[in-house]
Design a protein around this nucleic acid. Structure first.
Lengths: 189, 189
DNA sequence: TAGATGACCGAAATGGTTTTCTGGTCATTT
DNA sequence: AAATGACCAGAAAACCATTTCGGTCATCTA
């Protein structure tokens, strides 16, 4: 049996269920049916193991976002679909959700770092799409990194923060229309 | 001597210097040269005293923002000036800065609430300016509340969060140009 | 003998207990 | 009538004994 794979699966399950802090190496070892020391022959330490797992999650997320994109669709349609998918992933996917909570509640440095890496991945993903649509001639030539950052922060604000100050969350259609009328509209050639 | 005023000044100084949590009623009384009980003849409790002080701060901030606005200037120029002034205030003004820190570090409910109220004040201020410029016919008819919220969150993101992930903060001119090319551009008639 | 293991270590976290602090009250004073 | 500060109960802090946990390494096993 592939011991490394067993360990990765066990660790993924435990991190997703309990978070980084509350997962112990001994627990992972037990779930993986492996001695604790064995983990250290495959992974330098707990943090590196965690990084590997989060990075795998980032790949899955990017895959889902890619699947949400349709070749023929407009930039606005695709950007909206991809961002919504990734922000949905952020709330739905056990591991991602746990990381977000843990960063808020405990500020574990390892978690903070991987959360940043995940968000950076989203921004970069969007940036690449922008560059593609600029090359296609559908979008004006703008600083794609800034626009990607703006889109991410803006979507996050309307989807995550809005109902902190307002008692009902905005319907997705309203968000889509609003962004069409503001940001997206200004990006078209 | 006006005892209420003395108390307010003492409390303002203490809240600004040490924050809400670390300020004690006894300390305020001592600074104000007043018995502790006297405070309670003017203010229902610590929270209410704090609210009054923060609300006064909000007024000052709105005044500064108003001063930054020029009657003849474009919406973009005025919105930028006002937002920058208020976000600068957020970092410069002792009390505001302390509140932001304390909300992050301790999550005192009273502080959280007043921080929300302050941010809401900024959004409302911007919303009113938008409405004015819409009435003037300089801006398209859009949902001013959503736009105000977007502008606030976007400016906050670029001025406060940007250098968390990037090692140098964006120059103000670059921010101004960027928002001109994205959000503001889309708001014009 | 190479890879796996778990007892072991020091540092950090936890939890329970005692002590101090502080918001708010109110009997007394001015 | 207004001001005061001793006082109270509950919250927070300080303290410390005990446990937990990441990581190591001498031993084991296949």
């Amino acid at each position: 049996m592939d011991r490394k794979k067993e360990i990765l699966e066990a660790a993924t399950r435990s991190f997703s269920l309990f978070g980084y802090k509350a997962t112990t190496m001994e627990q992972i070892a037990k779930i993986a049916n492996v001695g604790k020391g064995t983990i250290y022959t495959f992974f330098e330490n707990k943090e590196v193991l965690f990084q590997e797992i989060v990075r795998k999650m980032i790949c899955e997320m990017k895959q889902e976002a890619t699947d949400a994109i349709q070749e023929g669709a407009s930039f606005q349609e695709n950007a909206h679909a991809a961002l919504m998918k990734m922000l949905e992933f952020r709330e739905t996917h056990q591991l991602y959700a746990k990381i977000v909570d843990e960063e808020k509640d405990w500020r574990t440095p390892a978690v903070k770092q991987m959360l940043h890496e995940t968000e950076q991945a989203i921004v970069t993903f969007i940036k690449e799409k922008i560059d593609k649509y600029v090359a296609k001639g559908e979008l004006r030539q703008i600083n794609s990194e800034l626009v990607a950052y703006l889109l991410f922060k803006a979507y996050l604000a309307f989807i995550n923060d809005w109902n902190v100050t307002h008692d009902e969350s905005l319907p997705e259609v309203e968000i889509a229309n609003f962004f069409q009328e503001t940001i997206f509209r200004s990006l078209l050639v």
